[in-house]
Amino acid sequence: MTHSPKPVLAVGKYAALLAYLSFALFPLYWLLKIAVTPDQLIYTEGTNLWPSEFTFDNFRSVVFQTDFLSYFGNSLYVSLGTAAVTTLVAAGAGYAFSRFNFAGKRLLIAVMLITQMFPLLMIIAPIYKIIAGLGMLNSLTSLIVVYTAFNVPFATFLMQSFFDGIPKDLEEAAMMDGCSRFQALYKVIFPLTLPGLGATLGFVFTAAWSELLFALMLISKNEAMTFPVGLLTFVSKFSVDWGQMMAAGVLALVPSCLFFIFIQRYLVQGLTSGAVKG
């Protein structure tokens, strides 16, 4: 890329950039547009690029007249819980993979890779029966447990890649300086891996925030519904209030976008660490 390209190529390049940008942003723009369009204009101005009137009524009514806040709270609880527990568990496992050679390591890694590949829906029926048998249907805790297990393999590979980036010498030096391995971990390695922990939290939060099918299966009570489940019942329960639904959607986007901004820097590292995840 040392030479400046020919003008034709430059124009083509910027045209391509613009095309990608509009493809990526147009649906999000539309989501926002519907959310701020007054109800009575949704049908008449459906295909206009720009609404003739703005309103925040949809946001107001979705927050104050629906169960939105409850869904939002449930999702936040489940996603934060999943993210925290997963990160803790994955940090331990990733550390072990990064620092130890032990019998069965290859097998364990293989098993973790396989869990990333087999159809998760395959276990939806057994999980439903087990959780029903434990009387834990409609419990957010059961969702956290299930989501944590689903996300641990990926998060483990991610954490492993972060630990791999921290020289082993450091904790060996700490152990020579009188630390136990755990002290070395806590005093030396942990402070250095804070960004990695943050990124893992972000990835897992985003994944848990958007999980739909298992939540649909395991949660049927309105007061325990997470955001995706609740939003889908918007569609079926009432005569669909599109404006409200889109407003709710915009609000649901906020947390994942916030986390996205944070984890953006780590995307490349995360997705090349041998892990595979939507």
């Binding site: 020289p167 010498d169 450091l170 060996e172 030096a173 020579m176 030396v188 250095l192």
Partner: peptide
Amino acid sequence: IAMVFQSYALYPH
């Protein structure tokens, strides 16, 4: 026993 590492292994933080 004390050890000096090739990479020095100084604690960066």
